[in-house]
């Protein structure tokens, strides 16, 4: 194969990574932006999303699309409910203090991970893709499902953007993000907003996981790498900036795909981490973030 098609393949793979990463990082960024909570357990919500997707898909026999669709609905809902519970039982009791919540979510990470190991086991299990179609390009065939992941991610990101900028709920979230005390003085139940945002963030991680699980399999340790990459994306893009998150995810995803294929995956991770270091030194608020007031 010539260089051009290789680059195309690498870019497509990179776009798939970017699509999933953007969704997951968006959840992380939303939670940090509105609640000032660094959710270290975000990767475990992603893992739970995949595991629950496997479980719900296995409930249904027949066409694989049915199981997948069920997973697409059920998994984010269950994960959001678990996040809601964690918020009520843990985060709220800590008054959302930044340091305390970091330690608490580390604890949450291990609890969820070990529960998954106990009840789901150490195996990696696949979910069948809803459709099995290959797109015949002149140089190679490419999975149509992977293209569908990209499309779904774009759709969800646009929906999130509209939700945040054009709806009342989004306005309330942005006001809470801007100044929680004053938001309360204008009748916004900040407590409830936090609970909803935390559930929403976790639900987005789960959604990303459901999309990826047909090509990656569900495993109890699968949350770790995406968590790291999500932090990379969120730091580069600027915490709390939707646009920054999407741009950074695209950049990290693409460079990961291309560098991994032409050189090595390790080099891709090294460069991403180096970029984070540079951003932290020269532009700590991120490329698209606004400086802390």
């Amino acid at each position: 194969m010539a260089f051009g098609p290789y680059l195309l393949l690498a870019s497509l793979e990179g776009l798939v990574t970017a699509a999933v990463l953007a969704l997951m990082a968006l959840g992380l960024s939303l939670v940090f932006g509105v609640m000032r909570v660094v959710n270290v357990a975000h990767g475990e919500f992603y893992m739970l999303g995949a595991v629950i997707a496997w479980w719900s898909a296995s409930l249904i026999s027949g066409h694989p699309a049915l199981g997948f669709l069920l997973a697409l609905v059920v998994s984010p809902l269950i994960v959001a409910a678990i996040a809601l519970l964690s918020d009520r039982l843990v985060l709220r009791r800590l008054n959302y203090e930044p340091q305390a919540t970091i330690v608490a979510t580390i604890g949450l990470l291990y609890i969820i991970q070990q529960l998954a190991l106990t009840f789901y086991g150490p195996d990696a299990r696949p979910v069948q893709a809803p459709f099995d179609m290959r797109l015949a390009l002149p140089w190679f065939g490419y999975s149509a499902y992977k293209l569908a992941i990209i499309a779904a991610s774009i759709f969800l990101i646009i929906a999130t953007w509209i939700g945040l900028t054009r709806t009342k709920a989004g306005l309330v979230m942005r006001a809470t993000q801007s100044d929680p005390d004053t938001a309360q003085a204008f009748g916004i139940p900040v407590d409830r907003v936090y609970a909803v945002v935390f559930a929403l963030g976790a639900g987005m991680a789960a959604l990303a996981a459901v999309l990826i699980v047909p090509i990656q399999q569900a495993h109890y340790l699968m949350g770790q790498d995406p968590l790291l990459l999500s932090f990379v994306v969120v730091i580069i893009g600027g915490l709390g900036s939707l646009r920054g998150t999407v741009v950074a995810a695209l950049f990290i995803g693409l460079s990961d795909g291309i560098i991994s294929m032409f050189f090595s995956p390790t080099l891709a991770k090294m460069l991403a981490t180096l970029l984070v270091a540079l951003v932290l030194v020269f532009r700590p608020q991120g490329l698209f973030g606004t400086a802390a007031r």
Binding site: D179, T182, F186, R293
Partner: peptide, 22 residues
């Protein structure tokens, strides 16, 4: 409030909307 404490990222209209929604 003291120091005005506007929702500085939001537009003027959005600030008013928060007040109206109360």
């Amino acid at each position: 409030p003291q120091g005005r404490r506007l929702f500085t990222e939001l537009t003027v209209l959005e600030n008013l909307q928060i007040g109206l929604m109360t």
